[in-house]
Design a protein around this nucleic acid. Sequence first.
DNA 1: CCGGAGTTTCGAAGCGGCGTCGAAAGGCTT
DNA 2: AAGCCTTTCGACGCCGCTTCGAAACTCCGG
Lengths: 256, 256
Amino acid sequence: MSKGSTVKSKVGRPRSAGATGSGDPRHDVLAAAGKLFFTKGVAATSMAEIAAAAGLQPPSLYYWFRNKTAILGALVAEANRVPLGMVADVNQAGGPAGARLWTIICLDVVALSALPFDINEVHRMVDDGSPEAATYWAERQQLIREVEAIVAEGVTSGEFRPVDPRLTALSVLASDEGSQNWHRPAGGAGAAPGDDGAAAYTPHQIGEHLADLTLRGLLTRPSGLDSIRARAQRSDLLQQIAVTETQSAVVSTDIR
Amino acid sequence: MSKGSTVKSKVGRPRSAGATGSGDPRHDVLAAAGKLFFTKGVAATSMAEIAAAAGLQPPSLYYWFRNKTAILGALVAEANRVPLGMVADVNQAGGPAGARLWTIICLDVVALSALPFDINEVHRMVDDGSPEAATYWAERQQLIREVEAIVAEGVTSGEFRPVDPRLTALSVLASDEGSQNWHRPAGGAGAAPGDDGAAAYTPHQIGEHLADLTLRGLLTRPSGLDSIRARAQRSDLLQQIAVTETQSAVVSTDIR
DNA sequence: CCGGAGTTTCGAAGCGGCGTCGAAAGGCTT
DNA sequence: AAGCCTTTCGACGCCGCTTCGAAACTCCGG
Protein backbone atom coordinates (compact mmCIF):
# COMPACT_ATOMS: atom_id res chain seq x y z
CA MET A 1 0.00 0.00 0.00
CA SER A 2 1.18 3.50 -0.66
CA LYS A 3 -0.98 6.00 -2.49
CA GLY A 4 1.86 8.44 -2.64
CA SER A 5 -0.11 11.62 -2.42
CA THR A 6 1.39 15.05 -2.87
CA VAL A 7 4.13 13.30 -4.83
CA LYS A 8 3.86 13.42 -8.56
CA SER A 9 4.72 9.85 -9.25
CA LYS A 10 5.09 8.34 -12.66
CA VAL A 11 4.46 4.82 -11.51
CA GLY A 12 1.37 2.82 -12.21
CA ARG A 13 -0.56 2.04 -15.33
CA PRO A 14 -1.00 5.14 -17.49
CA ARG A 15 -4.44 6.59 -17.91
CA SER A 16 -6.56 5.95 -20.94
CA ALA A 17 -7.07 9.67 -21.30
CA GLY A 18 -3.81 11.55 -21.15
CA ALA A 19 -2.56 12.39 -17.69
CA THR A 20 -4.35 15.47 -16.40
CA GLY A 21 -4.43 17.25 -13.10
CA SER A 22 -1.94 18.19 -10.46
CA GLY A 23 -0.16 14.89 -10.11
CA ASP A 24 -1.96 14.14 -6.87
CA PRO A 25 -5.01 12.11 -7.88
CA ARG A 26 -6.49 12.14 -4.41
CA HIS A 27 -6.48 15.89 -4.40
CA ASP A 28 -7.87 16.05 -7.93
CA VAL A 29 -10.75 13.78 -7.00
CA LEU A 30 -11.64 15.87 -3.98
CA ALA A 31 -11.46 19.08 -5.99
CA ALA A 32 -13.65 17.63 -8.72
CA ALA A 33 -16.13 16.20 -6.24
CA GLY A 34 -16.30 19.47 -4.33
CA LYS A 35 -17.01 21.42 -7.47
CA LEU A 36 -19.73 19.00 -8.58
CA PHE A 37 -21.27 18.72 -5.12
CA PHE A 38 -21.45 22.48 -5.02
CA THR A 39 -23.14 22.93 -8.36
CA LYS A 40 -25.39 19.86 -8.47
CA GLY A 41 -25.67 18.68 -4.90
CA VAL A 42 -24.23 15.52 -3.45
CA ALA A 43 -26.97 13.04 -4.27
CA ALA A 44 -27.27 14.22 -7.85
CA THR A 45 -23.56 13.78 -8.50
CA SER A 46 -22.56 10.35 -9.78
CA MET A 47 -19.26 8.63 -9.31
CA ALA A 48 -18.91 8.55 -13.10
CA GLU A 49 -19.13 12.33 -13.20
CA ILE A 50 -16.55 12.73 -10.47
CA ALA A 51 -14.26 10.31 -12.25
CA ALA A 52 -14.62 12.11 -15.56
CA ALA A 53 -13.94 15.47 -13.95
CA ALA A 54 -10.83 14.03 -12.32
CA GLY A 55 -9.61 12.45 -15.55
CA LEU A 56 -10.21 8.87 -14.40
CA GLN A 57 -12.46 5.93 -15.08
CA PRO A 58 -15.03 5.21 -12.35
CA PRO A 59 -13.35 2.14 -10.83
CA SER A 60 -10.16 4.08 -10.28
CA LEU A 61 -11.91 6.22 -7.70
CA TYR A 62 -12.12 3.17 -5.47
CA TYR A 63 -8.38 2.91 -5.34
CA TRP A 64 -8.23 6.29 -3.59
CA PHE A 65 -11.48 6.20 -1.65
CA ARG A 66 -13.44 3.34 -0.17
CA ASN A 67 -16.75 4.64 -1.53
CA LYS A 68 -18.72 7.79 -2.24
CA THR A 69 -19.30 8.45 1.44
CA ALA A 70 -15.56 8.44 2.01
CA ILE A 71 -15.12 11.17 -0.58
CA LEU A 72 -17.81 13.18 1.13
CA GLY A 73 -16.24 12.36 4.48
CA ALA A 74 -12.89 13.75 3.44
CA LEU A 75 -14.56 16.98 2.36
CA VAL A 76 -16.73 17.03 5.46
CA ALA A 77 -13.79 16.80 7.81
CA GLU A 78 -13.48 20.53 7.48
CA ALA A 79 -17.10 21.10 8.34
CA ASN A 80 -16.60 20.65 12.06
CA ARG A 81 -12.89 21.19 12.36
CA VAL A 82 -12.92 24.72 11.01
CA PRO A 83 -15.63 25.88 13.41
CA LEU A 84 -14.01 23.97 16.27
CA GLY A 85 -10.66 25.61 15.70
CA MET A 86 -12.41 28.92 15.42
CA VAL A 87 -14.15 28.41 18.75
CA ALA A 88 -10.82 27.60 20.35
CA ASP A 89 -9.31 30.78 18.92
CA VAL A 90 -12.21 32.87 20.14
CA ASN A 91 -12.08 31.38 23.60
CA GLN A 92 -8.35 31.96 23.77
CA ALA A 93 -8.87 35.57 22.79
CA GLY A 94 -11.04 35.88 25.88
CA GLY A 95 -13.60 38.52 26.69
CA PRO A 96 -17.17 38.27 27.90
CA ALA A 97 -19.31 35.34 26.84
CA GLY A 98 -21.55 37.57 24.77
CA ALA A 99 -18.75 38.86 22.59
CA ARG A 100 -17.37 35.38 22.08
CA LEU A 101 -20.73 33.94 21.14
CA TRP A 102 -21.39 36.77 18.71
CA THR A 103 -18.12 36.15 16.95
CA ILE A 104 -18.68 32.41 16.87
CA ILE A 105 -22.10 32.69 15.29
CA CYS A 106 -20.88 35.09 12.68
CA LEU A 107 -17.84 33.04 11.81
CA ASP A 108 -19.74 29.77 11.82
CA VAL A 109 -22.22 31.01 9.24
CA VAL A 110 -19.43 32.19 6.99
CA ALA A 111 -17.48 28.97 7.43
CA LEU A 112 -20.46 26.75 6.69
CA SER A 113 -21.39 28.84 3.69
CA ALA A 114 -17.90 28.41 2.33
CA LEU A 115 -18.20 24.64 2.29
CA PRO A 116 -18.62 23.07 -1.13
CA PHE A 117 -21.84 21.32 -0.12
CA ASP A 118 -24.99 21.73 1.86
CA ILE A 119 -24.22 20.51 5.35
CA ASN A 120 -27.80 19.31 5.74
CA GLU A 121 -27.30 16.91 2.88
CA VAL A 122 -24.33 15.50 4.72
CA HIS A 123 -26.32 14.83 7.83
CA ARG A 124 -28.36 12.37 5.85
CA MET A 125 -25.63 10.70 3.82
CA VAL A 126 -23.27 10.17 6.71
CA ASP A 127 -25.61 8.33 9.02
CA ASP A 128 -24.08 4.94 8.38
CA GLY A 129 -21.62 3.27 10.72
CA SER A 130 -18.51 4.30 8.82
CA PRO A 131 -15.51 5.59 10.76
CA GLU A 132 -15.61 9.05 9.22
CA ALA A 133 -19.25 9.24 10.19
CA ALA A 134 -18.34 8.46 13.79
CA THR A 135 -15.66 11.13 13.95
CA TYR A 136 -17.93 13.62 12.27
CA TRP A 137 -20.67 13.13 14.81
CA ALA A 138 -18.23 13.11 17.70
CA GLU A 139 -16.73 16.39 16.59
CA ARG A 140 -20.16 17.83 16.12
CA GLN A 141 -21.09 16.86 19.65
CA GLN A 142 -17.99 18.60 20.86
CA LEU A 143 -18.91 21.74 18.95
CA ILE A 144 -22.33 21.69 20.60
CA ARG A 145 -20.75 21.28 24.00
CA GLU A 146 -18.36 24.16 23.42
CA VAL A 147 -21.15 26.52 22.51
CA GLU A 148 -23.20 25.17 25.36
CA ALA A 149 -20.37 25.94 27.76
CA ILE A 150 -20.15 29.53 26.62
CA VAL A 151 -23.88 29.98 27.01
CA ALA A 152 -23.77 28.41 30.46
CA GLU A 153 -20.96 30.73 31.41
CA GLY A 154 -22.96 33.73 30.30
CA VAL A 155 -25.96 32.54 32.27
CA THR A 156 -24.11 32.01 35.52
CA SER A 157 -22.32 35.33 35.23
CA GLY A 158 -25.65 37.05 34.80
CA GLU A 159 -24.69 38.31 31.37
CA PHE A 160 -27.42 36.17 29.74
CA ARG A 161 -30.96 35.46 30.76
CA PRO A 162 -31.47 32.14 32.57
CA VAL A 163 -31.99 30.02 29.44
CA ASP A 164 -31.37 26.31 28.96
CA PRO A 165 -27.77 26.24 27.69
CA ARG A 166 -28.07 23.03 25.69
CA LEU A 167 -31.29 24.03 24.01
CA THR A 168 -29.82 27.40 23.20
CA ALA A 169 -26.65 25.90 21.78
CA LEU A 170 -28.67 23.60 19.56
CA SER A 171 -30.82 26.51 18.41
CA VAL A 172 -27.78 28.54 17.49
CA LEU A 173 -26.27 25.76 15.43
CA ALA A 174 -29.61 24.98 13.81
CA SER A 175 -29.89 28.56 12.65
CA ASP A 176 -26.38 28.53 11.28
CA GLU A 177 -26.91 25.30 9.43
CA GLY A 178 -30.28 26.34 8.14
CA SER A 179 -29.02 29.60 6.69
CA GLN A 180 -25.88 28.32 5.04
CA ASN A 181 -27.63 27.12 1.91
CA TRP A 182 -29.53 30.26 0.98
CA HIS A 183 -26.99 31.22 -1.61
CA ARG A 184 -26.24 27.82 -3.10
CA PRO A 185 -26.95 27.19 -6.75
CA ALA A 186 -28.59 23.78 -6.30
CA GLY A 187 -32.11 24.21 -4.97
CA GLY A 188 -31.42 26.15 -1.84
CA ALA A 189 -34.29 26.45 0.58
CA GLY A 190 -34.07 30.21 0.60
CA ALA A 191 -33.22 30.76 -3.03
CA ALA A 192 -35.99 28.48 -4.16
CA PRO A 193 -36.66 27.73 -7.79
CA GLY A 194 -38.61 30.44 -9.50
CA ASP A 195 -37.81 33.13 -7.00
CA ASP A 196 -35.18 35.74 -6.39
CA GLY A 197 -34.57 34.03 -3.06
CA ALA A 198 -32.05 35.22 -0.57
CA ALA A 199 -29.08 35.15 -2.86
CA ALA A 200 -28.80 38.89 -2.45
CA TYR A 201 -27.33 38.51 1.04
CA THR A 202 -23.69 37.69 1.63
CA PRO A 203 -22.78 35.08 4.24
CA HIS A 204 -21.17 37.83 6.24
CA GLN A 205 -24.40 39.83 6.32
CA ILE A 206 -26.38 36.77 7.31
CA GLY A 207 -23.93 35.92 10.04
CA GLU A 208 -24.03 39.37 11.58
CA HIS A 209 -27.79 39.45 11.42
CA LEU A 210 -28.08 36.07 13.09
CA ALA A 211 -25.53 37.01 15.73
CA ASP A 212 -27.34 40.24 16.49
CA LEU A 213 -30.69 38.54 16.76
CA THR A 214 -29.44 35.74 18.98
CA LEU A 215 -27.33 37.86 21.27
CA ARG A 216 -30.00 40.44 21.78
CA GLY A 217 -32.34 37.58 22.66
CA LEU A 218 -29.92 36.30 25.26
CA LEU A 219 -28.51 39.40 26.89
CA THR A 220 -29.92 40.48 30.20
CA ARG A 221 -29.15 44.04 29.18
CA PRO A 222 -29.93 44.20 25.45
CA SER A 223 -28.36 47.59 25.11
CA GLY A 224 -25.06 45.86 25.61
CA LEU A 225 -25.25 44.53 22.06
CA ASP A 226 -23.56 47.58 20.63
CA SER A 227 -20.50 47.26 22.80
CA ILE A 228 -20.36 43.55 22.00
CA ARG A 229 -20.43 44.26 18.29
CA ALA A 230 -17.77 46.90 18.72
CA ARG A 231 -15.57 44.55 20.70
CA ALA A 232 -16.04 41.72 18.22
CA GLN A 233 -15.24 43.94 15.27
CA ARG A 234 -12.11 45.17 16.98
CA SER A 235 -10.89 41.64 17.46
CA ASP A 236 -8.76 40.59 14.56
CA LEU A 237 -10.57 37.25 14.44
CA LEU A 238 -13.15 38.72 12.16
CA GLN A 239 -10.43 39.53 9.69
CA GLN A 240 -10.22 35.86 8.97
CA ILE A 241 -13.61 36.09 7.38
CA ALA A 242 -12.04 37.64 4.35
CA VAL A 243 -9.65 34.74 4.11
CA THR A 244 -12.35 32.14 4.59
CA GLU A 245 -14.53 33.83 2.03
CA THR A 246 -11.93 33.95 -0.70
CA GLN A 247 -10.90 30.35 -0.28
CA SER A 248 -14.54 29.46 -0.48
CA ALA A 249 -16.52 26.92 -2.40
CA VAL A 250 -14.02 24.97 -4.34
CA VAL A 251 -11.72 23.36 -1.80
CA SER A 252 -8.66 25.27 -2.76
CA THR A 253 -6.65 24.26 0.28
CA ASP A 254 -5.64 20.66 0.21
CA ILE A 255 -7.78 18.47 2.40
CA ARG A 256 -5.98 16.52 5.07
CA MET B 1 -59.12 6.16 -15.55
CA SER B 2 -60.72 6.09 -12.16
CA LYS B 3 -58.71 5.09 -9.11
CA GLY B 4 -61.84 4.95 -7.03
CA SER B 5 -60.33 6.10 -3.79
CA THR B 6 -62.23 6.05 -0.51
CA VAL B 7 -64.47 3.45 -2.12
CA LYS B 8 -63.79 -0.12 -1.22
CA SER B 9 -64.11 -1.58 -4.66
CA LYS B 10 -63.89 -5.25 -5.49
CA VAL B 11 -62.89 -4.67 -9.06
CA GLY B 12 -59.50 -5.31 -10.53
CA ARG B 13 -57.13 -8.20 -10.43
CA PRO B 14 -56.86 -9.68 -6.95
CA ARG B 15 -53.62 -9.36 -5.07
CA SER B 16 -51.12 -12.13 -4.84
CA ALA B 17 -51.09 -11.69 -1.09
CA GLY B 18 -54.56 -11.66 0.36
CA ALA B 19 -56.30 -8.30 0.32
CA THR B 20 -55.11 -6.23 3.25
CA GLY B 21 -55.62 -2.68 4.35
CA SER B 22 -58.46 -0.26 4.45
CA GLY B 23 -59.82 -0.77 0.95
CA ASP B 24 -58.30 2.49 -0.20
CA PRO B 25 -54.92 1.54 -1.62
CA ARG B 26 -53.83 5.12 -2.13
CA HIS B 27 -54.35 5.84 1.52
CA ASP B 28 -52.62 2.62 2.53
CA VAL B 29 -49.58 3.48 0.47
CA LEU B 30 -49.31 6.92 2.01
CA ALA B 31 -49.70 5.55 5.50
CA ALA B 32 -47.05 2.90 4.89
CA ALA B 33 -44.69 5.39 3.27
CA GLY B 34 -45.18 7.87 6.08
CA LYS B 35 -44.38 5.29 8.70
CA LEU B 36 -41.27 4.11 6.87
CA PHE B 37 -40.08 7.63 6.04
CA PHE B 38 -40.41 8.46 9.71
CA THR B 39 -38.46 5.50 11.02
CA LYS B 40 -35.83 5.10 8.31
CA GLY B 41 -35.75 8.39 6.47
CA VAL B 42 -36.88 9.04 2.92
CA ALA B 43 -33.78 8.11 0.98
CA ALA B 44 -33.27 4.88 2.89
CA THR B 45 -36.80 3.69 2.20
CA SER B 46 -37.18 1.67 -0.99
CA MET B 47 -40.26 1.38 -3.14
CA ALA B 48 -40.19 -2.35 -2.50
CA GLU B 49 -40.48 -1.73 1.23
CA ILE B 50 -43.36 0.67 0.78
CA ALA B 51 -45.10 -1.81 -1.48
CA ALA B 52 -44.63 -4.65 0.97
CA ALA B 53 -45.93 -2.56 3.85
CA ALA B 54 -48.96 -1.64 1.77
CA GLY B 55 -49.59 -5.23 0.72
CA LEU B 56 -48.64 -4.70 -2.92
CA GLN B 57 -45.95 -5.58 -5.39
CA PRO B 58 -43.63 -2.71 -6.33
CA PRO B 59 -45.03 -2.02 -9.81
CA SER B 60 -48.49 -1.58 -8.39
CA LEU B 61 -47.36 1.56 -6.64
CA TYR B 62 -47.01 3.20 -10.02
CA TYR B 63 -50.68 2.75 -10.70
CA TRP B 64 -51.46 5.07 -7.78
CA PHE B 65 -48.43 7.39 -7.90
CA ARG B 66 -46.28 8.57 -10.77
CA ASN B 67 -43.05 7.89 -8.87
CA LYS B 68 -41.43 8.03 -5.46
CA THR B 69 -41.34 11.81 -5.47
CA ALA B 70 -45.10 11.89 -6.01
CA ILE B 71 -45.61 9.82 -2.87
CA LEU B 72 -43.41 12.21 -0.96
CA GLY B 73 -45.19 15.11 -2.60
CA ALA B 74 -48.57 13.93 -1.40
CA LEU B 75 -47.24 13.72 2.14
CA VAL B 76 -45.41 17.01 1.79
CA ALA B 77 -48.51 18.89 0.79
CA GLU B 78 -49.25 19.26 4.48
CA ALA B 79 -45.82 20.63 5.23
CA ASN B 80 -46.59 24.13 4.00
CA ARG B 81 -50.37 24.07 4.12
CA VAL B 82 -50.59 23.45 7.84
CA PRO B 83 -48.28 26.35 8.74
CA LEU B 84 -49.95 28.57 6.14
CA GLY B 85 -53.40 27.93 7.53
CA MET B 86 -52.02 28.51 10.98
CA VAL B 87 -50.57 31.87 9.97
CA ALA B 88 -53.93 32.85 8.54
CA ASP B 89 -55.64 31.90 11.78
CA VAL B 90 -53.16 33.83 13.86
CA ASN B 91 -53.44 36.90 11.69
CA GLN B 92 -57.20 36.74 11.86
CA ALA B 93 -57.03 36.55 15.63
CA GLY B 94 -55.24 39.88 15.48
CA GLY B 95 -53.10 41.48 18.15
CA PRO B 96 -49.66 43.06 18.01
CA ALA B 97 -47.10 41.72 15.57
CA GLY B 98 -44.95 40.40 18.40
CA ALA B 99 -47.65 38.19 19.85
CA ARG B 100 -48.56 36.85 16.42
CA LEU B 101 -44.97 36.08 15.52
CA TRP B 102 -44.41 34.33 18.84
CA THR B 103 -47.40 32.10 18.26
CA ILE B 104 -46.40 31.36 14.70
CA ILE B 105 -42.89 30.28 15.63
CA CYS B 106 -44.13 28.07 18.40
CA LEU B 107 -46.81 26.45 16.27
CA ASP B 108 -44.54 26.06 13.26
CA VAL B 109 -42.00 24.09 15.25
CA VAL B 110 -44.68 21.78 16.57
CA ALA B 111 -46.27 21.36 13.15
CA LEU B 112 -42.98 20.57 11.43
CA SER B 113 -42.01 18.16 14.17
CA ALA B 114 -45.28 16.32 13.68
CA LEU B 115 -44.54 15.61 10.03
CA PRO B 116 -43.63 12.03 9.24
CA PHE B 117 -40.34 13.07 7.64
CA ASP B 118 -37.46 15.44 7.97
CA ILE B 119 -38.40 18.52 5.98
CA ASN B 120 -34.76 19.11 5.11
CA GLU B 121 -34.66 15.81 3.32
CA VAL B 122 -37.60 16.95 1.26
CA HIS B 123 -35.84 20.11 0.18
CA ARG B 124 -33.35 17.95 -1.60
CA MET B 125 -35.60 15.33 -3.11
CA VAL B 126 -38.18 17.73 -4.46
CA ASP B 127 -35.88 19.92 -6.49
CA ASP B 128 -36.91 18.48 -9.81
CA GLY B 129 -39.37 20.15 -12.14
CA SER B 130 -42.38 18.12 -11.08
CA PRO B 131 -45.70 19.88 -10.51
CA GLU B 132 -45.87 19.04 -6.83
CA ALA B 133 -42.39 20.48 -6.47
CA ALA B 134 -43.57 23.70 -8.04
CA THR B 135 -46.56 24.04 -5.75
CA TYR B 136 -44.43 23.16 -2.75
CA TRP B 137 -41.92 25.89 -3.49
CA ALA B 138 -44.64 28.39 -4.32
CA GLU B 139 -46.40 27.75 -1.04
CA ARG B 140 -43.13 27.98 0.81
CA GLN B 141 -42.43 31.37 -0.78
CA GLN B 142 -45.84 32.50 0.36
CA LEU B 143 -45.09 31.36 3.90
CA ILE B 144 -41.88 33.36 3.85
CA ARG B 145 -43.73 36.41 2.59
CA GLU B 146 -46.38 36.11 5.30
CA VAL B 147 -43.80 36.00 8.05
CA GLU B 148 -41.89 38.79 6.36
CA ALA B 149 -45.03 40.93 6.34
CA ILE B 150 -45.56 40.48 10.05
CA VAL B 151 -41.96 41.41 10.77
CA ALA B 152 -42.23 44.45 8.51
CA GLU B 153 -45.38 45.49 10.31
CA GLY B 154 -43.64 45.23 13.65
CA VAL B 155 -40.73 47.27 12.40
CA THR B 156 -42.81 50.13 11.04
CA SER B 157 -44.93 50.25 14.16
CA GLY B 158 -41.80 50.55 16.24
CA GLU B 159 -42.57 47.33 18.09
CA PHE B 160 -39.47 45.69 16.59
CA ARG B 161 -35.98 46.97 16.03
CA PRO B 162 -35.24 48.15 12.49
CA VAL B 163 -34.19 44.75 11.11
CA ASP B 164 -34.31 43.52 7.54
CA PRO B 165 -37.74 41.84 7.37
CA ARG B 166 -36.86 39.29 4.70
CA LEU B 167 -33.62 38.23 6.32
CA THR B 168 -35.42 37.90 9.63
CA ALA B 169 -38.23 35.85 8.15
CA LEU B 170 -35.73 33.50 6.55
CA SER B 171 -33.85 33.21 9.84
CA VAL B 172 -37.01 32.32 11.70
CA LEU B 173 -37.97 29.60 9.26
CA ALA B 174 -34.41 28.30 9.15
CA SER B 175 -34.45 27.87 12.92
CA ASP B 176 -37.78 26.11 12.84
CA GLU B 177 -36.70 23.74 10.11
CA GLY B 178 -33.36 23.11 11.73
CA SER B 179 -34.86 22.16 15.07
CA GLN B 180 -37.66 19.91 13.84
CA ASN B 181 -35.46 16.85 13.49
CA TRP B 182 -33.88 16.79 16.93
CA HIS B 183 -36.26 14.16 18.15
CA ARG B 184 -36.48 11.96 15.06
CA PRO B 185 -35.36 8.35 15.26
CA ALA B 186 -33.36 8.34 12.03
CA GLY B 187 -30.07 10.15 12.53
CA GLY B 188 -31.28 13.52 13.68
CA ALA B 189 -28.69 16.26 13.75
CA GLY B 190 -29.37 16.99 17.40
CA ALA B 191 -29.90 13.46 18.62
CA ALA B 192 -26.80 12.24 16.86
CA PRO B 193 -25.70 8.63 16.95
CA GLY B 194 -23.92 7.75 20.14
CA ASP B 195 -25.26 10.59 22.18
CA ASP B 196 -28.24 11.38 24.33
CA GLY B 197 -28.94 14.21 21.93
CA ALA B 198 -31.83 16.58 22.32
CA ALA B 199 -34.53 13.97 22.42
CA ALA B 200 -35.29 15.02 25.96
CA TYR B 201 -37.06 18.16 24.74
CA THR B 202 -40.59 18.13 23.45
CA PRO B 203 -41.42 20.06 20.28
CA HIS B 204 -43.55 22.35 22.40
CA GLN B 205 -40.61 23.20 24.65
CA ILE B 206 -38.38 23.81 21.67
CA GLY B 207 -40.97 26.02 20.03
CA GLU B 208 -41.42 28.19 23.09
CA HIS B 209 -37.70 28.51 23.57
CA LEU B 210 -37.18 29.53 19.96
CA ALA B 211 -40.07 31.96 20.09
CA ASP B 212 -38.74 33.55 23.27
CA LEU B 213 -35.25 33.87 21.88
CA THR B 214 -36.36 35.35 18.57
CA LEU B 215 -38.93 37.74 19.97
CA ARG B 216 -36.63 39.06 22.63
CA GLY B 217 -34.08 39.65 19.90
CA LEU B 218 -36.57 41.63 17.88
CA LEU B 219 -38.49 43.66 20.43
CA THR B 220 -37.54 47.27 20.92
CA ARG B 221 -38.65 46.88 24.54
CA PRO B 222 -37.51 43.36 25.53
CA SER B 223 -39.46 43.47 28.75
CA GLY B 224 -42.58 43.23 26.63
CA LEU B 225 -41.85 39.56 26.10
CA ASP B 226 -43.74 38.54 29.21
CA SER B 227 -46.94 40.21 28.14
CA ILE B 228 -46.56 38.69 24.67
CA ARG B 229 -46.21 35.24 26.13
CA ALA B 230 -49.20 35.83 28.36
CA ARG B 231 -51.28 37.03 25.45
CA ALA B 232 -50.23 34.13 23.25
CA GLN B 233 -50.97 31.59 25.94
CA ARG B 234 -54.40 33.13 26.48
CA SER B 235 -55.23 32.77 22.82
CA ASP B 236 -56.91 29.50 22.20
CA LEU B 237 -54.74 28.95 19.14
CA LEU B 238 -52.15 27.30 21.28
CA GLN B 239 -54.69 24.75 22.32
CA GLN B 240 -54.40 23.33 18.83
CA ILE B 241 -50.94 22.21 19.73
CA ALA B 242 -52.38 19.34 21.68
CA VAL B 243 -54.38 18.31 18.65
CA THR B 244 -51.46 18.58 16.27
CA GLU B 245 -49.24 16.65 18.63
CA THR B 246 -51.59 13.73 19.00
CA GLN B 247 -52.27 13.34 15.34
CA SER B 248 -48.54 13.36 14.80
CA ALA B 249 -46.13 11.25 12.89
CA VAL B 250 -48.17 8.66 11.15
CA VAL B 251 -50.48 10.54 8.84
CA SER B 252 -53.64 9.62 10.60
CA THR B 253 -55.82 12.10 8.78
CA ASP B 254 -56.35 11.19 5.18
CA ILE B 255 -54.21 13.19 2.84
CA ARG B 256 -56.01 15.18 0.22
C1' DC C 1 -75.35 -17.07 -20.05
C1' DC C 2 -72.00 -14.55 -23.05
C1' DG C 3 -68.85 -10.98 -24.37
C1' DG C 4 -66.72 -6.61 -24.09
C1' DA C 5 -65.21 -2.69 -21.23
C1' DG C 6 -63.13 -1.00 -17.24
C1' DT C 7 -60.21 -1.49 -13.10
C1' DT C 8 -56.45 -3.04 -10.53
C1' DT C 9 -52.53 -6.00 -10.01
C1' DC C 10 -48.46 -8.21 -11.28
C1' DG C 11 -44.15 -10.58 -13.88
C1' DA C 12 -40.57 -9.57 -16.70
C1' DA C 13 -37.42 -6.53 -18.14
C1' DG C 14 -34.67 -2.01 -18.90
C1' DC C 15 -31.68 1.35 -17.14
C1' DG C 16 -28.54 3.65 -14.36
C1' DG C 17 -25.98 3.97 -10.08
C1' DC C 18 -22.56 2.07 -6.76
C1' DG C 19 -19.12 -1.06 -5.87
C1' DT C 20 -15.93 -5.54 -6.68
C1' DC C 21 -12.56 -8.39 -9.00
C1' DG C 22 -8.90 -9.55 -11.48
C1' DA C 23 -5.95 -8.33 -14.88
C1' DA C 24 -3.19 -4.91 -17.46
C1' DA C 25 0.43 -1.46 -17.96
C1' DG C 26 3.78 1.02 -16.57
C1' DG C 27 8.21 2.21 -13.38
C1' DC C 28 11.72 0.66 -10.03
C1' DT C 29 14.97 -2.49 -8.06
C1' DT C 30 18.08 -6.21 -8.26
C1' DA D 1 15.84 -9.76 -17.70
C1' DA D 2 12.90 -10.81 -13.78
C1' DG D 3 10.23 -9.73 -10.24
C1' DC D 4 7.75 -6.36 -7.33
C1' DC D 5 5.00 -2.36 -6.47
C1' DT D 6 1.85 1.19 -7.92
C1' DT D 7 -1.91 2.79 -10.40
C1' DT D 8 -5.47 2.25 -13.78
C1' DC D 9 -9.02 0.04 -16.14
C1' DG D 10 -12.72 -3.45 -18.38
C1' DA D 11 -16.07 -6.54 -17.29
C1' DC D 12 -19.32 -7.70 -14.22
C1' DG D 13 -22.81 -8.16 -10.27
C1' DC D 14 -26.25 -6.14 -7.48
C1' DC D 15 -29.83 -3.21 -6.19
C1' DG D 16 -32.91 0.66 -6.85
C1' DC D 17 -36.51 2.98 -9.61
C1' DT D 18 -39.40 2.68 -13.34
C1' DT D 19 -41.94 0.92 -17.76
C1' DC D 20 -44.52 -2.32 -20.45
C1' DG D 21 -47.79 -5.36 -21.49
C1' DA D 22 -50.58 -8.87 -20.04
C1' DA D 23 -53.38 -11.18 -16.48
C1' DA D 24 -57.32 -11.48 -13.39
C1' DC D 25 -61.21 -9.99 -11.82
C1' DT D 26 -65.95 -7.22 -11.68
C1' DC D 27 -69.55 -4.98 -13.97
C1' DC D 28 -72.87 -4.21 -17.43
C1' DG D 29 -75.47 -4.70 -21.78
C1' DG D 30 -77.54 -7.96 -24.68
